[in-house]
Simulated assay, not measured.
Amino acid sequence: MNKWAIGIIALTLILAGVVYAIYESNDYDFEDSTKSYEILNKWELPEELDEVSGMQWIGDEKIACVQDEDGIIFIYDLSTSKIIKQYKFANSGDYEALTSLNNELWVAESNGKLFNIKSLEGVEENSEVIELEFEYRNNIEGLAANTNGELWLSVKERNLDNSSGYKGIYSFNPLTNKLNKEPVLKISYDDPKFDVLKTDNPRKLIRPSDITFSPLNDDLYVLDAEFQKVLIVDRKGQINNLHLLDPAEFAQPEGICFSPSGRLFIANESLGGPANIIEVKIN
């Protein structure tokens, strides 16, 4: 066996170990009997989207995607399983979320910058940049537009005022460019729906990797990549449902979005295999 073959085998074993370690790090035991979703479709993404971090349905079987490092919006066609367009909106950064409001795209960078892209047909690197009062320690990872014309943002790490006992979701008004530093919604760590996780460690309860609103009932869907799950939360912050995701199927879920008809999509970064988009039906 040559050195190349040995290297490939070693790398495969390392990646398998990483995925297994993530699975074992959860305090709960995921079993098929607890599965509350069905996988309808799956698309393996090209290398350009290995670090896919946010996505937004834009119609006609097309999903706009961003990835962590490059300031590029990739248009992925589900019907052909190909990237059909790229639009550079900014230089390299740490881009974590993508949404659409009034036919304009918005991208969130983890440090608190918002990028407003008026049109993908316009001049590249022509986006409007808005700097919010966030810090790296807050770490924005979720962005979603609601029916009231607001953008809601989730923080993966600390709340804006460093308060404890809940995970805060914040609102931004794009008409006034004002961020409401008081949470528009609080997800309490004491919510009984968290009991299934068998832990009171806030880091394991919820660290949002993305958020989106259901077009069917306007509930907020909160995705967690580190301890794989989806929370369905009402406008008072109460968890209506908590759906555990199998780490073997969702190695690192970083992006979530709906189609207008209610189709639900979750994107996984590359970890032990190609990055992917999975269409899910939650029971």
Rank of each mutant, 00 (worst) to 15 (best):
N2M: 09
K3G: 00
W4N: 13
I6R: 15
T12K: 05
L13N: 12
L15Q: 14
G17C: 13
I22L: 14
Y23G: 11
S25F: 05
Y28H: 09
Y28Q: 00
D29C: 02
S33W: 01
Y37Q: 09
L40E: 11
P46F: 02
E48W: 05
L49K: 04
D50P: 00
V52S: 06
M55T: 06
D60N: 14
I63A: 03
V66F: 05
Q67Y: 01
E69K: 11
F74M: 06
I75C: 01
I84K: 00
I84V: 15
L98Y: 00
N103T: 01
L105E: 06
W106H: 03
V107G: 01
G112M: 04
K118V: 03
S119L: 06
E124A: 11
N126K: 04
E133N: 13
R137H: 12
N138G: 07
N139G: 08
A145R: 01
N148S: 13
G149A: 01
V155G: 04
N159S: 09
L160E: 11
G165L: 15
G168I: 05
S171E: 11
P174V: 05
K178M: 13
I187H: 06
V196N: 05
L197E: 08
L197Y: 06
N201H: 10
N201I: 09
R203N: 13
D210C: 07
Q228K: 12
Q228H: 05
Q228Y: 05
K236H: 13
N241E: 15
L245G: 03
A248F: 12
F250I: 00
A251P: 14
C257N: 12
P260L: 07
R263C: 02
A267P: 06
A267T: 02
G273M: 09
G273N: 12
A275P: 13
I277S: 10
I278S: 14
E279G: 04
I282Q: 08
N283V: 02
